[in-house]
Design a protein around this nucleic acid. Sequence first.
DNA 1: GAAAACAGTGACAACGTTTTCATGGAAAAT
DNA 2: ATTTTCCATGAAAACGTTGTCACTGTTTTC
Lengths: 350, 350
Amino acid sequence: MVANTEHPSQYASLTGDTPIVTVTDVAREAGVSVSTVSRIVNGTARVADDKRLAVEAAIARMDYRPNLHARSLKMGTSMTIGILTQRIESPVFNRVMLGIEEGLMDSGYAPIIVSGHWNQAEETERVRLLMARRVDGLVILNGGLTDAQLIEFSSRQPVVATGRRLQGHNLNAVRLDNVHGGYLATRHLLSLGHRRIAHIAGPDDHSDAVDRYMGFLRAHEEFGVPADPELVFQGDFNENGGALAMARLLDSGRSFSAVFAGNDQSAMGAHMVLYRRGLRVPEDISLIGFDNLPVSAYLTPPLTTVHQPLYEMGQYLAQSLLAMLGKSAGEEIKVPDMELVNRETVKRCV
Amino acid sequence: MVANTEHPSQYASLTGDTPIVTVTDVAREAGVSVSTVSRIVNGTARVADDKRLAVEAAIARMDYRPNLHARSLKMGTSMTIGILTQRIESPVFNRVMLGIEEGLMDSGYAPIIVSGHWNQAEETERVRLLMARRVDGLVILNGGLTDAQLIEFSSRQPVVATGRRLQGHNLNAVRLDNVHGGYLATRHLLSLGHRRIAHIAGPDDHSDAVDRYMGFLRAHEEFGVPADPELVFQGDFNENGGALAMARLLDSGRSFSAVFAGNDQSAMGAHMVLYRRGLRVPEDISLIGFDNLPVSAYLTPPLTTVHQPLYEMGQYLAQSLLAMLGKSAGEEIKVPDMELVNRETVKRCV
DNA sequence: GAAAACAGTGACAACGTTTTCATGGAAAAT
DNA sequence: ATTTTCCATGAAAACGTTGTCACTGTTTTC
């Protein structure tokens, strides 16, 4: 079937052969006005039962679906919220997104996800794309946008963000206490007698990475143990960077009994290199990660790490956004603190 | 600044305080007509240089962004393509999505992602949501929708899908040869002398899982080695299911020298249990996975597995979709075959 | 030097909704 | 029996775009 003449959709031939049915078509088919159809679709006013039945039948028969663009144009609201993540493959952000998805469930809002790849220009561009789509709310997961940009965005629609602290009208940026997390990890090692602790840091333009290192230093201070800056090597928060850092650490010939990796992925890379060099974890070297990725519990041995409440964070973000949109949901979500997950890659220093 | 009276946006007070600027505002500001502004924004016709400058200045000054809903409504095209994934945390689908994202890059199309959670009702609902948004194309990543549904969808807009084979007008569903993949994995074990090979299967309503098992059987047949059905246990394609299956396998008391896990996550779960029971991989038991997840190269020991060309698949899907949309891009993407990745969890059977 | 072609521009009609407003008739009140 | 109230309904005006059409001038052509 080719586009029929009665309903000449200029695109029907291009994209498909099912004619797009509009409210007008339904109205004609049911013998009522478009207003009546609209009222029935949205349940916005009473209509006589016979017409209602006729319209509902027509809708079902013709498989009518309201055009959301037309609706958005008229209503000024799109019932979508835009999420800027950094990389679609990131297990960390994906966990947050899972929480957001859950928190948005049956609120009527649908998420649309774009990636910024830790590149400020790209992030800006992507957010502008979201705003051109007139998203009703914005979620910014970390990245390199400035606070000023977020404030500017928040003058157009509510914004929630992670990785920074910022409050304002229609703006709520939260950040987990990574200093505390780094402190917890390091304290654990120190309390088990480790005195020469290496650290595989994340990228230094990455505030989470810097904060974890801060926690590392703070724990040393508290224990009166000097942290050796020569034992700190920078990775890239990926397995490969962790492996490289570990190799450089070993090649440096400096002695150490434990490693605090900036995240679980770095820890896995580091573990790989230790394994290659015949060093056993934890018998020869203790290893602790950060993030508590789902896989970390299934490594051999299971990785000791710091748990981040990412899922709850996502739920909190969603709820916070909904509140700003006036669609406030039930009980307030609490985001728990970071927590040490004591598994099997750390042992007492002999 | 509060919403001004000259431009009384009914939503300004609700969502933000920056007035939304339209093409009309820009036209007034620049002293030209809306047509001219539109022409400049879209580069659709020549306009005099002085007006162009004036308009461009006004656009920059007022930070005008065209309302994509209005544009979509007028043009009948939304410049978005909808992606139905199953779970936002799935590393497998995320790799495909990365490829799609790359393939869509600077085509002007933006992806919008929804999840179906392997639930046909939810998937249908989500796809309807995408179609209500008038996406210009649809990507369906596996899941439980029927072929008939996909055909129906394809009458509205181009559809590409994974996990099945289906061709039609505006429809292209491809599937990697999982039978071959399962065959490769099993053949590898058989060729190293293993004769009693266990299999941790995926969910039996999961065609990939079934196909991999088929490949397992086919390799046995080819080698003239009877496959022992008592050595097949079902997991759920997650670490935990793999661990459970492995535990049941060991508890069954049957002898085996190698395990073919239906995917890498199952393999990790299985490895965990072997480790707990004091069985070493590969010295005591050989283990092979499937998927070649990024982490698998960094396990200790690195996991032998079957590589799926997921990224290329994503690129291919994107390109195929663009072709259907008439925006055909450069050279044809080839999706390579599955490939055995020989790492360190398999050794010759003694 | 007149006719023809053309380049630049603005008015205005769509696109598919929702909602206000007016209207007709039925039910309720006098 | 007449007025009032009320309810269901349709016509029409937005929402912010884009593209067609008509209308100017200006340039080319013979």
